[in-house]
Write a protein that binds this DNA or RNA. Structure first.
Length: 822
RNA sequence: GCCCCGAUGGCGGAAUGGUAUACGCGGGGGACUUAAAAUCCCUAACCCGAAAGGGUGUACAGGUUCGAGUCCUGUUCGGGGCACCA
């Protein structure tokens, strides 16, 4: 038998497919077929090249879209490059080339690698976030954020021009610049969003982050918190992905409670009050002190007014906590520290008790109101704090408990949460409140390799958006783009780029020098795929209406929190403004799945430092793309992490070799059992692709192939179907075999095989006989046996275990078993 | 601490509440070969038994059911996410 000419076949068909434009999606109007939009997270084209993890997702969605295409759907399966970002900048610095050159080189390499895998991408729709034709629209959209506000009444974003003139526009813009404490990575020399500094360390390099005050561009994603939460109900995401989104948004329901304040210099209560947020207003009777975040603005006020007696100690504590990094604050979390604001007392509205006020860094300034009522009897943290500083602990007791107790004189009663909120509102001591952990999105980066934020600062006019007809704002070509210690963007030092005329008044002005985060370009790329070459709009309504929403989106778990949240938000914003048409719906992705990691042999993570990285180039060189693809599908359940196994890929190679050989020999004569396996296989592979059980699809193809081998060949009426079943997984081999059996056209547009329901079961089967739950016998019977006959045969076969007794109960499961209770 | 997911042979894993371990890897045995590789065939959960057969078995303890890997309750271990969020 001839050896399978793997590489010749693959090269031949890849060229043919490209020539025929086989995988090009038809625009609306050109096709009457149903559309299917399959999406994979577009890769960041790193200098390392493709990782074996990338194709796991690409191959899976390729299999699914291939099946759809074979079924006649108009499939959109696009590819592009999320090419801005820090690693390219670092790579470029190392290689002494520009980021533009580095990107071009890396994209070239990725393109070669992806093409060698024979993935059915529509390459005519390729997008690149660093292409001015693309980022022009990213900038354009930023200007929409800048020129919009959130209309609370309508519950959606509207153009800022609709804001009543009595409002100060700058306070309502969806994109705004504000001084904020940012996470600063001293190694990367970059400001990070909270999301990128989780656990107090830089996401990129693992260095502890410091806090810095800096004016940053922010986007008001918090306005969408409720919608981002609620709309999860209408989409099909993996449960754990929904859970991550819900967690991150972090909704808490409770109340704001106001505490009146008395200070050292004032006998009468101060004007100021402290508002605390609590999810447990029912424990208000047990609040024995208040705690403010060290940064709470009232602390400053009271120091100035002389209302606190120990200003020096307070200021020292404030300085100490400001100097701590996030990680230090977290690590020391067990030991509570703080300082009392001596001279200041608050009134507990529930019982008019005077309670002390403290500052402590266990209270966060940027959540809730930056102040809490401490109930040490019912909160672990408050308890720890109270124990350190010997503060009173009062337990709040429920009415139910009161009934059975005899020492309750004077002990406060626990009201139900809702009852308590109503009481607070009635007495005007507070109000119902909802808070979210989600913060506004820090959108500024002090880096070169990102989209310049299209704003011009004019001394006279303030911040002015770059007019649409002057977009894109290009990155200047420079020699040095290394970040500086000053925290300024490298763009700031390029004076000829920075200095411009104000688009409004024509006076001297300066460009904004911050660039956008990576998340920007990836927040809307799926829209651009619908209409990638449009130079009038980011995408036409007609095309968006046709293609959106994405039917299936797949990517790694590492992007199911941030990227998913940002892009859902971004999409909703565009939808609010009508840039994305109403008909597309409020969510961009109808269905989201994620694949598991591919680990190194032995179960460790692949990493360069461990030297256990498998390079797709080597695998394809040795085995070819079909084996590589099929092995990745066979390794294990799609959503689980699985280790690479060199022996495992050999098994798949042998399998495809056997398939190849099957078509070298004679056609076999069909017989009943073979037909059964065939029809079962059609069903199992069809269902398996739908439910993303790709590993069992491959198993079933092996079972079918083994059956054909045993039969001595593939019966002629099963040849087409068998090749069609193979096509989504081994597209090159399938195409070659398709040609070999004399079929015209591509197998990938040839239809999808159907199974015959009547042929899913063999003529006879082994009827299982259980006695008292144990399998005692098997009787081969006709498939169409009647219930009565089956029971009779079963009882006969079970005679030995029944010992002449009459069965108490006989249960019949059609096609499976008879269960006898003796 | 909170949330999510998982635990099945030597290994990756399969199994709409109905024959546990399909398929693949690795192992053992054999064929072909001077030999090896490649390829092909056979074998294989564990215990008792020569065999027929019987018993045990899906992390652990219970429960529901004629019947549980699957459903319920509790526990242990592992993975992931969040975490001083009041």
């Amino acid at each position: 038998m001839a050896k399978r000419p793997v590489h010749d076949i693959e090269a031949k068909w890849q060229a043919q497919w490209e020539k025929d434009g086989l995988y090009q999606a038809a625009d609306p109007g050109q096709s009457n077929a149903e559309k299917f939009y399959g999406l994979i997270e577009f890769p960041f084209p790193s200098g390392e090249g493709l990782h074996v993890g990338h194709p796991r997702s690409y191959t899976a969605i390729d299999a699914m879209t291939r099946k759809r295409r074979m079924e006649g759907a108009n499939v959109l399966y696009p590819i592009g490059w999320d090419a801005f970002g820090l690693p390219t900048e670092n790579y470029a610095i190392k290689m002494k080339v520009t980021p533009q050159e580095a990107t071009k080189k890396n994209v070239g390499n990725f393109t070669r690698q992806l093409k060698m895998l024979g993935l059915g991408f529509d390459w005519t729709r390729e997008v690149d976030t660093t292409d001015p034709k693309y980022f022009k629209w990213t900038q354009w959209q930023f200007i929409r954020f800048y020129n919009s506000y959130y209309n609370e009444v309508e519950g959606r974003a509207r153009p800022i021009s609709e804001l009543p003139p009595t409002f100060n526009k700058d306070e309502y813009r969806m994109a705004y610049k504000a001084a904020s404490t940012i996470n600063w990575c001293p190694r990367c020399k970059i400001g990070l969003a909270n999301e990128e500094a989780q656990g107090g360390v830089c996401e990129r390099c693992g260095n502890p982050v410091e806090k810095r005050e800096k004016a940053q561009w922010m986007i008001r994603i918090t306005k969408y918190a409720e919608r981002l939460l609620k709309d999860l109900e209408g989409v099909d995401y993996l449960d754990k992905i929904k859970a991550q989104q819900i967690n991150w948004i972090g909704k808490s329901e409770g109340a704001y409670v106001d505490f009146a304040i008395v200070g050292a210099q004032h006998a009468a209560p101060l004007q100021d009050k402290i508002t605390a947020f609590t999810t447990r207003p029912d424990t208000l009777f047990g609040a024995t002190y208040l705690v403010l975040a060290p940064e709470h603005p009232l602390v400053e006020t009271w120091i100035k007014e002389g209302n606190v007696k120990n200003a020096t100690a307070i200021q020292e504590y404030q300085r100490a906590s400001a100097a701590k990094t996030e990680i230090e604050r977290t690590n020391e979390s067990k030991e509570k520290t703080g300082v009392q604001l001596e001279g200041v007392m608050a009134t507990n509205p529930a019982n008019q008790e005077q309670i002390p006020v403290w500052i402590s860094d266990y209270v966060l300034a940027n959540y809730g109101t930056g102040a809490i009522m401490a109930v040490p009897a019912h909160d672990e943290r408050d308890q720890a704090f109270a124990e350190v500083f010997k503060l009173p602990i009062i337990e709040v007791i429920s009415e139910e408990a009161m009934v059975n107790s005899d020492f309750l004189n004077g002990v406060p009663v626990w009201k139900a949460k809702d009852e308590m909120i109503s009481w607070l509102e009635e007495k005007e001591f507070g109000e119902r409140a909802t808070t979210y952990k989600l913060r506004d999105w820090v959108f500024s980066r002090q880096r070169y390799w990102g989209e310049p934020i299209p704003i011009i600062h004019c001394a006279k006019c303030g911040a002015v958006a770059v007019p649409d007809d002057q977009l894109p704002v290009m990155l200047p070509e420079v020699e040095a783009y290394e970040p500086s210690d000053s925290g300024e963007s490298p763009l700031a030092s390029i004076r000829e780029w920075v200095e411009v005329k104000c688009p409004q008044c024509g006076g001297d002005a300066e460009r904004e020098t911050d660039t956008m985060p990576n998340w920007a370009g990836s927040s809307w790329y799926f829209l651009r795929y619908c209409d990638p070459n449009n130079d009038q709009e980011l995408a036409s309504h007609e095309k968006l209406k046709y293609w959106m929403p994405v039917n299936l989106y797949n990517g790694g778990m590492e992007h199911t929190t941030l990227h998913l949240l940002y892009s859902r938000f971004w999409y909703k914003f565009l939808w609010d403004l009508g840039i994305v048409p109403e008909e597309c719906g409020s969510e961009p992705y109808a269905k989201r799945r994620s694949h598991g990691l591919i680990l190194a042999q032995g179960g460790e993570k692949m990493s360069k430092s461990k030297g256990n990285v498998v390079n797709p180039d080597d695998v394809v060189k040795e085995y070819g793309a079909d084996v590589f693809r099929m092995y990745e599908m066979f390794m294990g359940p799609f959503d689980q992490a699985v280790p690479w196994d060199t022996n495992g890929i050999e098994g798949v190679r042998k399998f495809l070799d056997r398939v190849w050989n099957l078509f070298d020999g004679e056609a076999a004569n069909p017989f009943s059992d073979l037909e059964t396996v065939y029809h079962q296989s059609v069903k199992k592979v069809s269902d398996g692709i739908e439910f993303m059980h790709f590993n069992t699809c491959v198993s079933q193809l092996m079972i079918l192939s083994n059956a054909f081998t045993d039969a001595g060949g593939v019966p002629s009426d099963m040849r087409r179907g068998f090749i069609q079943l193979l096509a989504p997984f081994a597209p090159h081999l399938a195409e070659e075999l398709w040609e070999k059996i004399g079929e015209k056209g591509s197998v990938h547009k040839s239809g999808w095989p159907a199974f015959d329901k009547d042929k899913l079961h063999a003529a006879t089967f082994d009827l299982v006989v259980q006695v008292n739950g144990k399998v005692r016998a098997k009787v081969n019977v006709d498939s169409d046996i009647s219930e009565e006959d089956a029971k009779a045969k079963a009882i006969e076969a079970a005679a030995k275990w029944l010992e002449g007794k009459e069965p108490k109960q006989v249960i019949y499961v059609k096609g499976k078993l008879v269960s006898i209770v003796a």
